[in-house]
Nucleic acid binder design. Structure first.
Lengths: 244, 244
DNA sequence: ATAGATTCGATCTATGGTTATCGATATAAA
DNA sequence: TTTATATCGATAACCATAGATCGAATCTAT
């Protein structure tokens, strides 16, 4: 799950097509649609309707339609959308057709996992180098990326115009790393360390907060086992919701 | 970010204290409060008010108060809450005072990272064994946990009454693994593989969906760089929101 | 060519979550 | 002891998101 630290006010979120602000939940569903459409394409299906998408993704058709409208795609009555077009629309909407070069800090297991995830390139994410402060890791190559000393980050980020930083260090190091990134002019941080980052308001922070997920998960498990009383319309199974 | 697959209807989510259903966002904020309160405790602070929490966490006090009420804690006017009590209240509310034993499948980098994360035990999560289908990994020990063959999972889960499964395999394997887990009577799945899992409705699924996060992140970055026009109350920085 | 079925796009309504308000209560200061 | 202030808990207003409805458009089948 994600907690974005510098919230202040959830303000209007506008998008290019000028269709007004897009709700965060809609934005979150985009990748789901994208993934699903890629599957359709693999199966040789070239047209799809909102009803179909909704049925397969457990969403009500109207919601799908609304979400897709944000991408600027237009569909035809009775036929629906052209799958290929729709994929492109989503990719362009999300900026996945442009490359985002990124620096990753923290060449541990998690960092290594991300470095090895070639599929990111399909979504415009290109991790170009890794950094660490552990001398034993510096100079190594991980999945074809050099591990450089952390103190080179700011300068390199600036010279290479890197806008995105990924933090996969332990919690203690996270703030220091974030500060370095900001010093290097990095605009957005994808943070996997379980720490609240203090950043200037112009910096975008997305934190993957495992504990938050774990919290919902264990709460729901606890519910199931310690609250045998379940007496209403919804089945005991209905304890789920999206965005857990 | 998290997408929970078997949604159907986001139905009422009830909790023990009987204060009515708890909103998912509130649930997600719980771990944040918990983390913050632990910090306070480390600093020797023993009382705290909602205003204080809100100021430090960028939340409006009234929201904090409401969230905390779900845990059943009661505070005193003018003083606020006793930190130690509050921590206990949250832990008990989330079920973090009970142990959840879990099996993890997929002893790759990500799996290894999770297996090595001792801090999980503080939150009631105890990963008791790892599984894999790669013969070269079977029989190894990772961070003190044995890596067993996948086909032993269902039987062991049943005999040991394991309720929680963690999937850290590649996407292709995820569904097979989930099926095995369900065969073993597992109730909840924490899925890190980028795949939609098909599960019976009684099984809780929490998927950490990296692509969804990446989608928001790259959208926001794209917004920043490709839409120089930003003409309203909110600053261009205000593009953030929680739950990205 | 026409009738029927299906789906899109737009508008409207309902739900759920967030934020504001108000009285009550506890502490601190006068 | 009294008064002022801060905070809690509850209720109510508000806003964002989700869902329902309806007309218009397009395709298929007769």
């Amino acid at each position: 799950m994600v907690i974005d630290i510098n919230l202040s006010n959830p303000e209007a979120i506008h998008h290019p097509a000028g269709q007004g602000p897009i709700p965060q939940p809609s934005l979150n569903r985009m990748s789901q649609y994208h993934h699903y459409l890629m599957e359709l394409q693999d199966q040789g299906i070239d047209r799809v309707s909102c009803s179909r998408i909704g049925a397969d993704l457990n969403l009500v058709p109207v919601q799908v339609r609304k979400d897709l409208q944000y991408t600027g795609i237009i569909g035809k009555p009775k036929t629906g959308y052209v799958v290929a077009e729709l994929i492109l629309a989503i990719e362009s909407f999300l900026g996945w057709n442009n490359v985002n070069e990124a620096f990753l800090v923290g060449a541990g297991n998690l960092g290594t996992a991300l470095l090895g995830h070639e599929r990111f390139t399909k979504f415009g994410l290109q991790i170009v180098a890794a950094f660490d402060s552990d001398p034993s890791k510096i100079g190594q190559w991980v999945h074809g990326k050099a591990v450089l000393p952390l103190d080179k980050l700011a300068d390199l980020a600036q010279r290479m115009s890197i806008h995105l930083g990924i933090i996969t260090t332990p919690a203690e190091a996270a703030q220091t790393v974030a500060d370095e990134m900001i010093r290097g002019g990095i605009q957005a941080i994808w943070n996997f360390a379980p720490a609240r980052l203090k950043v200037p308001t112009h910096v975008i922070v997305h934190s993957e907060d495992l504990y938050s997920s774990l919290a919902s998960l264990s709460w729901k498990l606890a519910q199931r086992f310690h609250v045998p009383i379940q007496q209403e319309g919804g089945t005991p199974d209905g304890v789920d919701a999206n965005c857990g």
